[in-house]
Amino acid sequence: MEVTLNGDPCTIVNDLTIAKFLSTLDLEGKFAIEINQHIIPRSEYPQTPIHPGDNIEIVQAIGGG
C-alpha cells in the first residue's frame, strides 16, 4: 500500500502495525510518531494498524537553540 512517510511517498506491505513497520526501519534512539497528525503513544505501536494513504511522521531530537 501507498503511504506518506516524512513527506515522501512510500510503498509498504499491507496489514502492518506501527510496531512491525518500525522493525523494518532500523531506527536508533528516541523518536515519536504521528499518523495523520495524531500522536501515537509508544505503548500503542503493537496494536495500531497503518492504513493506505496514511501520513506518517517520525521525528527525533536534533541540535537546536
Binding site: L27, F31, I58, V59, A61, I62, G65
Partner: peptide, 9 residues
C-alpha cells in the same frame, strides 16, 4: 535545548 525534526530514515 534541542529541536524536533523529521528522522532521516
Amino acid at each position: 535545548t534541542v529541536a524536533i525534526r523529521r528522522t532521516n530514515i
